[in-house]
């Protein structure tokens, strides 16, 4: 195989190397790649917002469906721009309060639902050692997250069992994620050696 003659593969390869150069130290190549990524992602984000929000959720319902209810969120959104005017900048707190309030309120039932699912998953549907480990693990972990009691005596001992279970779970998650990251790295190296340099097939 020969080295690539595709312009875009060269660009991708050089940008990959520029980002990896950060592993040595901060340098102008990394800075260039960083600013390029940040700038492009902002531009891309704006175009996504324009098409998926302004056009799809505001313009189309307003112009084609004559849905004037859209004016309420539009007005709330426009209030965010009041931050550019010092004397009315406090108005930007209204949409923020609306978003925080609605978001928190909506998350309450879904959090409870999630809780029910977790309790269901803990229920021993068959009697075996695995079910026992799960029950002991969940109860001791719950004790670790007790904040109204000091972790001393019996509570302290159970919470230590809980944090041990947590750390075992973290270890497993760490190993699993590292494996996924290594496979991403292998993919990048394959791109450099195969698609760009043509050293390997």
């Amino acid at each position: 195989m020969a080295i690539s003659t595709n312009f875009w593969i060269w660009i991708a390869a050089l940008l990959t190397l520029a980002i990896y150069s950060f592993l040595y130290k901060d340098n102008p190549f990394y800075k260039f790649a960083e600013y390029l990524l940040v700038g492009i992602s902002i531009g891309y984000g704006i175009s996504i917002y324009w098409h998926n929000t302004i056009i799809t959720k505001v313009y189309n319902p307003l112009v084609y469906d004559k849905n004037f209810l859209v004016l309420i969120p539009l007005l709330l959104g426009l209030l965010m721009f009041s931050r550019f005017f010092k004397n009315v900048s406090y108005l930007s707190r209204i949409p923020i309060a609306f978003v925080v309030g609605a978001g928190t309120g909506l998350s309450v039932p879904s959090s409870f639902e999630f809780l029910f699912k977790q309790i269901y998953a803990t229920m021993p549907l068959k009697l075996d050692i695995g079910s026992l480990i799960i029950v002991v693990g969940v109860i001791s972990t719950l004790v670790y997250f007790f904040f109204s009691l000091e972790h001393k005596g019996f509570v302290g001992k159970v919470s230590k069992v809980g944090i041990t279970f947590i750390m075992v779970a973290f270890g497993a998650a760490f190993g699993y994620t590292i494996m996924a990251r290594v496979s991403l790295f292998i993919g990048r190296i394959q791109f450099l050696l195969s698609d760009w340099l043509g050293i390997i097939k």
Binding site: V38, I40, G45
Partner: peptide, 11 residues
């Protein structure tokens, strides 16, 4: 910074 996950991390 940006609303791109890895753009944000790089920044």
């Amino acid at each position: 910074i940006t609303q791109d996950q890895f753009g944000y991390a790089a920044g």
